[in-house]
């Protein structure tokens, strides 16, 4: 699973996507990601997150601009199985008669012969991937007979088995408990260390600074992109979310009275993000743990 090639980059330049109905969901979006990064894709509902994913996977053709992966067009990257996708739960038919093992094996199809006969190599990789997400014991279960977090892990295992060097995760934390979330984050960190690029769309603002080193803020175009400390600020979040975010200003609260510090708490309905005076992110991106998270 460890990357066997030199660094891979994702370049999105001036991408404009217009759907058949004439709606331009995304215009002039540009950003780039270097290998070994986890990037959060943050924006309101309908801001074009899924559309951007579709553009990177080659499901929609940009009417303008281009996406390149490792310097190659998306079509070529597909043939090499470079881009793996972890779908949103709602997109999957859970009643389908396939087992966990079958699903993960599907990640290997791109490497198999015409008849898709698994080689020992494929079986080994499937096993490794399942063990890595701690789902090996469930390999014979029908996929619908799993909990929400287990389902997510199976599809993550499929991305691993595929050897996807760019992994797209569409809202991986919805319906997942804290423990599984931590496990998934841990896995993403390992993959980052191995040189993978992960793009994670999420409404879970609070966990963004915890594991994402890059952030792309989006609202029908890229509003800001870059390292988390620089981009994930109150000003930018306000720009991205307008009035949509729930905001609790503690300036005049008892918190403020007691220790004299101003704290802002922003939430897009899931875990809140905590910002200090002037809208600076109070969270330090490191492995020191989460102190500084709470006021």
């Amino acid at each position: 699973m460890i990357s066997d090639q030199a660094s891979l980059e994702v370049h999105v330049s001036d991408v404009t996507v217009t759907y058949n109905n004439g709606h331009t969901a995304l215009h002039d979006a540009s950003f780039h990601l270097r290998s070994g990064s986890i990037c959060a894709l943050v924006g309101v509902n309908g801001s074009g997150k899924s559309t951007l994913f579709k553009a990177i996977m080659g499901f929609v053709r940009p009417s303008r601009g281009s996406v390149t992966i490792g310097g190659r067009p998306v079509k070529e990257a597909q043939k090499k199985s470079w881009v793996a996708y972890v779908p949103q739960s709602e997109e999957v038919d859970w009643t389908f008669p396939v087992s966990v093992w079958d699903v993960v094996m599907m990640g290997r199809y791109g490497f198999m012969n015409f008849l898709r006969t698994p080689r020992p190599e494929d079986k080994r990789l499937v096993r490794e991937s399942l063990e890595r997400v701690k789902m090996w014991d469930f390999r014979d279960r029908q996929i619908g007979e799993l909990s929400g977090g287990q389902k997510k892990r199976v599809f993550l295992a499929r991305a691993l088995a595929q050897g996807g060097r760019v992994i797209l995760l569409d809202e991986p934390f919805t319906g997942v408990d804290v423990k599984t979330e931590a496990a998934i984050i841990e896995l993403l960190r390992e993959l980052r260390a191995a040189g993978h690029i992960m793009l994670v769309s999420t409404h879970n603002l609070g966990s963004v600074p915890e594991f994402c080193d890059q952030v792309v803020l989006i609202n029908r175009t890229v509003l800001a992109s870059g390292p988390t400390e620089e981009v994930f600020t109150q000003a930018n979040l306000a720009l991205a979310f307008g009035g949509v975010l729930r905001q609790f200003q503690f300036d005049h609260s008892t918190v403020d009275d007691s220790d004299g510090r101003a704290v802002t708490l922003l939430t897009d309905d899931e875990r809140p993000v905590v910002l200090g005076r002037g809208g600076h992110l109070e969270h330090r991106l490191s492995d020191e743990g989460k102190q500084g998270d709470e006021s």
Binding site: Q78, P87, V92
Partner: peptide, 22 residues
Amino acid sequence: LAKWKDLLLFCFDANQARSIGL
């Protein structure tokens, strides 16, 4: 018989099929 696995993937998860270049 030759293509049942591809067809299965297509029925189950067309996006995945597309993303690996089918």
